[in-house]
Design a protein around this nucleic acid. Structure first.
Lengths: 218, 218, 218, 218
DNA sequence: TATGAATGAGTTTTCATTCAT
DNA sequence: AATGAATGAAAACTCATTCAT
């Protein structure tokens, strides 16, 4: 029997154990959520214990998705913290690097619509969206400041940048088994490297977007 | 017992009946695929009959997705057929109109990664991708011609346009139950109207993209 | 469309085609009866046609079993036709050789109880048993004559010999996948070679049986 | 909800409940295995619970078959425990009595080849065969001692005795519906009473076998 | 708090057989 | 006679979640 988590710190630690177990199992097979039993086992806990920390299995992954999203926003904030040496290309580079370092993010994104948002109390989902919009607004405001945007423009660009990213990923990520089936040259048009394609697409998008907004490169 | 579909035309018609039954049921609850039994019933057929026309339930929806995709590409071809009165904004308008008239398209797109591509023989999937890449190339070539792009640029723009669209849709489409929970003003930044947002985002993307390519508006 | 079988000879030939198709498919996987569709396909016929010749799938295999059984009895009759050079060991040798040349016989026997006799009109089954008992009586009578048995003893010995054979086969025949798992020396007691074991067991049985009956080797 | 089986004893008891439920349902219709749902219901449990104790439905019946087999071997050991008053006829009598008291044994035997050994992990099957060969060897050794056989002869006789029994049973056991169709006198040769036939056949077999071996009746 | 035994809803797919052509 | 499209019964098994201990 696992030790009892009596104080808040211990509870938080245990919650984290579960999240990390879920994360690592999901990465092994990112096309379906691992079973609750499997997660519990990986976390060294009993099945019932998991449900003391999350009301449904999907809540676990929503929490995971949230962590990644907030992490990404913070990364962006740190990028835009020092406006002296800022350029869009270098921003995109660090953006892409973050995604590569957190492979579960876009994979979870791809399951949001059909899996994650199902089987979840709307209460929890609303809470999640509230935190999300708050973070988006905050990071967006920093962009507004850094790039002298009108209020709200930064948040909008962030939302769109994320949307473009998730869309591209879903169009270009193939399960390993399929990858080997698509090696033929005829498939080239739908098999560019995700990272280059992401950089190119976002580059073009931001170029167009900045012309519609204010200054930026003074 | 349903009438026997003996010749190819009748078989094709029956196959279509199944597709339309699947389509209409899916639109009633676009977060999960309807059951095979339900589809058969809606089509006025026995369960087993459905499996005479499709090897798995998912194949039905992949076929549906394919139809929509090819329809969209044809729509685009027809848009670019008459280059005399062409403008990007009017292209985007017709593009968005097509999507609005075919609501199942983006909903199916959202299920591709986590549901559709599962439980499907790779054989069938490869076939599907092959048809898809062929269509993309063909329509892309027309763009190349119409807009004086270097070869392949049109296909690339189409792929990206589609990716942006699917990403935006997933970021902005909320299940009805959730919509009512997000009416509060604080959620405004993540609740722009999908259509306007799509037009704005694609508009900015194409603006940026065209500057990187060749001429277009001479 | 296959040619029409108008006369009796043609009908018989077609029936035989079906039997042989069933036989060869069954031997490929002798743990389950092949599907009706598969049999029809192998025979170059449509599914419905098979049901013009047999009322159920199981009837096909019962017919096959019957053929083998009657063949075996005839073989035995031919063995005992020439009493001059008869000996039990040589009889058993030819008996075993027949079985080896007709591998489907004992495999079908093993499915009789749980599969074949199910899903079969009792009418057909009774008919089958009637033919069987007639053949058994006839061949048995020849044994009675050849070995100077009291009436009925021959039939009884045949029945028992068959029973011993089918029991041994079921106790010693392992599916290929299992065979490789039982190579370890500890399994030796339950893995004697079927043929030797059959000869030994029947040899002992007949030795005991003949002492209870009459003369034989004078 | 059934009471929780927390300790090993309770778990064993529950497992046994399932086995007995399966047994009694199987005897009601010994030509097919009852469904898992039916077994669960009969045991007063939910379907899922059954699968906590057995991985497949077939495993249940394999376990049942094992129990009967080991019971039979133990019976034989007890028969041969007191060599003072031993005789083959009395051995066979008690052997037959055991079979009559455990009607599911031979019925399960008849399904082994075509049903039980299917849908079963080879791992489990190997385990089963291992226990079986161990028991056979042990009981066989006792025969060797009691009847002064060369080593291994006892196990061999047991294997053959079992094989003869199962073969005879399959040749002579008719489903009730069929029995009434075979009352006619012409069927007499294939309808001897199973018990008498078993005694007679095994009697003859052992008579022949003992002459090939060592002493026995001193 | 932690455990893990018990629950039971839920669905795809196969395939023997029929029968309209 | 031959075809093959249509039928629909039938059942194993998983797994998220609960709750007695």
């Amino acid at each position: 029997m696992a030790t009892r988590a009596h104080d808040d710190a211990a509870r938080l630690a245990r919650r984290n154990t579960i999240l990390q177990a879920a994360r690592s199992l999901f990465l092994l097979d990112p096309h379906q959520l691992p079973s609750a039993a499997h997660i519990a086992n990986e976390a060294g806990l009993a099945k019932g214990t998991v449900y003391l920390y999350f009301r449904t299995k999907e809540e676990i992954f929503l929490a995971l998705l949230g962590e990644e999203f907030f992490g990404l926003m913070q990364e962006i904030e740190s990028i835009f913290a020092d406006t002296s040496k800022l350029s869009i290309p270098s921003f995109l580079q660090r953006y892409a690097a973050y995604l590569e370092a957190h492979p579960e993010f876009l994979r979870l994104d791809a399951m949001t619509y059909s899996v994650l948002e199902q089987n979840m109390s709307h209460e929890v989902l609303r809470e999640f969206k509230l935190a999300l919009v708050a973070q988006l607004t905050k990071t967006g405001a920093q962009l507004d400041a850094a790039l002298q945007f009108p209020a709200g423009r930064g948040a909008s660009l962030l939302l769109r940048t994320h949307a473009i990213t998730r869309g591209l990923w879903q169009s270009l990520a193939y399960p390993p088994a399929l990858q080997t089936l698509l090696v033929d040259e005829v498939f080239a048009p739908i098999r560019p490297d995700f990272n280059s394609e992401l950089m190119a697409t976002l580059g073009e998008y931001w170029q167009g977007a900045l012309q519609n907004s204010a200054p930026y490169p003074p």
